[in-house]
Structures are given as structure tokens and as C-alpha cells.
Design a protein around this nucleic acid. Sequence first.
DNA 1: TAGATTGTTAATCGATTAACAATC
DNA 2: TAGATTGTTAATCGATTAACAATC
Lengths: 213, 213
Amino acid sequence: MKRCRISNNVIRRLPRYLRHLDDLQARGIERISSSTLGDQLGLTPSQIRQDFSCFGEFGQQGYGYHVSALREQIAAILGIDRGHEAILVGVGNMGKALLCNFDFANWGFRLVSAFDVNPQRIGEDYNGVPVRNAEDLESFLQQHPVEAAVLTVPREAALSTAQRLSQCGVTAIWNFTNVELPACGETIVENMHFSDSLLALSYFVANRNNEEE
Amino acid sequence: MKRCRISNNVIRRLPRYLRHLDDLQARGIERISSSTLGDQLGLTPSQIRQDFSCFGEFGQQGYGYHVSALREQIAAILGIDRGHEAILVGVGNMGKALLCNFDFANWGFRLVSAFDVNPQRIGEDYNGVPVRNAEDLESFLQQHPVEAAVLTVPREAALSTAQRLSQCGVTAIWNFTNVELPACGETIVENMHFSDSLLALSYFVANRNNEEE
DNA sequence: TAGATTGTTAATCGATTAACAATC
DNA sequence: TAGATTGTTAATCGATTAACAATC
């Protein structure tokens, strides 16, 4: 096994591999070669083999990769089996959409609580996840530390809430607020910047004719 | 002006520049140099100057960049002033969250209609955006072509809906379905893969100790 | 065994950084 | 004018692709 520093590009491709392997498995496909996988994902076989070789030797010469074994390896690399616990802060439309629709468990996370400032929301329950008073954030986290916090508060509250979470020792923040959070100590920030994505789309639409020529 | 093929990395940085320039403007800052901007964004001054030089000469030697002028240039490059029109398909939790909370107009898009299959939702109105019957998608788009479609249908419906949109000549699909959409003809697909982002976060959490040493 | 396909090393390509003449 | 900072060319660095010996 070649030990290399894992580049961000590689990390960002792993979830896509995982999704595709899940798909292959659902279709009953048991083995796959790097060249077939490359065709399906629009990547070169070389790149796929390079990516995997950062983490170990998962294939077999002359055969390829076992879909299910490879799937498990990648899932393990991504930490799906670590039983990460998480909270969600801000039960507005976005927070509710995640609470109701997003399958955290499927991706290795267990939501243990939600928090909000609105008294009408406090006490609500979404699939077994209770909404607590945001004032009790600190005391809750002290008793029950979590790895991750989903940040779905309004933008005005984004920065202060992120700082509180960081101070409580939350390892990572999944940031839906469209606000750039400055590095808070050790805390990892993973951004879901909707507007960045929409603006990239806007750029591609505006420049679609240049691309072709 | 140096004419280069614009790399994807550059395109993905543009929205961040725009957000930051908006922020500077809100704070009343009128001029900025590439090195100050670099400090604030965690980029090198060289990279920032290289990025801008793909599109023109926006600065002034010895002075730097006018924040408001630069902001307008980048907004124009991203196509914010093009008056793009869009529809939204699938008024579930995610669709509603976008309809209620996301400021499409601020990013240069005008939502002209939403669509859903559920009769109870048809006829609803979100800030002036009516929900129409999804069966009428084709006839509506024929009368009223749009550049973009926001895809927030359940995953089972993702592929078929994307194909219908593509056949109706929608230029780009903003895909929230966590399903990998294959290239449908000319249609541009911009993905918001929540799970990919969460899994990257999971990786960083699982490997946070390796990173430091 | 022969064919296929891996893991890895070497070659290429592209993106980032550094340097500097031009100039406000 | 002198200092600052640009736009751009050259140098470096890293990521992708190609090639191939190893081997299932």
C-alpha cells in the first residue's frame, strides 16, 4: 500500500464511487474493472486505480474489483461505520426538510436532537428527534458530546451559533447558512453554499455557446 | 486581456469572490488589493490576479481594485444580469424550503412557476409562484421556455422528470435529487448532492488526527 | 497456460505560485 | 517623483494519464 497524502480531489470523488457502487450492487452486479467503472463515471481507469491505491489494494489482477467488498472499503474510509452522532440547529424550512427527508442514518450519522429558539417549535418531534430550546445547547452538549452539527439557522444567527458550537467542542459543522464561517479553532466546516452552485449553473448557461467552439 | 480557457476551479471560485465583495461593500470598503483579498479568502494574491485576468483587466496598478466595480464585473461574468427564468419541479419539503427561503432573485433568477403531481398542492402559491399540475409541464414550457429547472422531486421520479425537462429544451437542471443524472443531450446538470458533502465531512471527522501529524 | 487487469512508476498536463516590468 | 500594485510571463508544484511488470 502506497501511503500518500490524500488530496481533496480524491476525497470528493469517494462519495461518488460509493453511490455508484450502491447502484451496481442494487442491480446485482458483482464484479467490475477499473475501465468499466471509468466508462460509467466519466473517469480514466488510471485515475480510479490511483484513487483506490491511496488507501490499499482492493482489487485482484485479471479480475477487477468485487463490488460489495469495494463498497465496504470505501464506506469504511469515509467513516460511515463510525456511528457519528449529530445535532441540528435551526428548525426552519431547511431544517425541517432535512429532518423529514434526509436519511442521515444511511450515511452513518445519528441525529440525537434538534434545537430552536422559537417556543412553538420546542417540544416538537421529527421521526424521534426532539426539538430542544437553543438556550440549552451548551448544557446538552456537555452531557452529550457530538461529532457534528447541522447549521440551518437564519443568516443573522449563523456566526454566533457556529462559535457556540465550536466552543462546545463540536468537531464539524455542516453549514447551510450561505455565510462564510471563519475557521473557529479546530472545527471543521463543510459548506453547502446553494448560491455558489446556482451561480456556477448561471455561468454555464450564460457561456454555453463559448464552450462548444 | 489574456484569453484562456476558463478552468472549472476558476468558475467555482467566482461565486465566493462575489459573496465576499458583497460583504466588503456592505461594510463600506471601497478599494481592495489582491493581497488583502487573498488574506481574507485564504488564497494567494497571484491566484486572485490570475483568476481575474481570465476575464479582463479590472484593477489599477498601484491602487488595487474598486470593490463595487469588481463586484459588478464578476456578477456580469456569472450572468446575474441576464434575467434567467426558472421553474421548480417537486413541491415537497425541499422544494418548499427553496420556494420560501431561497432568494432566487438575488442571484439573477426569476421563478415563474412550480409543478407537482399532488392535487392538493396544485393551485398553491408561494410568494407569487403558482404550483401547476406536473402533467402540464410540456405545454407550459412550450409557451414559456425557461433556462433552468430546479429538480426537487423524489428520487424515483428524478430520471424521468429530468428527461422530460431536457426534451422540453430546458438549458440547465439544478439537481437536488441525489441521483446521478446521465448527460441528457445538451442539458447542463448542476448537482447539489447533500450526501456527498456529508460524507466528505464524515471523512474529515474520521481522519482529523491524521491530518495534523 | 493465456488473457485480463491490477498496482505502481514514469511522463504529461494543468493549475498554482513567484517574479518582475509596466504604470497608476 | 516614489511607493504600491497590477497583469503577465516563467518556474514550480501537484494531479492526471500512460505504460508496464506483476500476477490472478
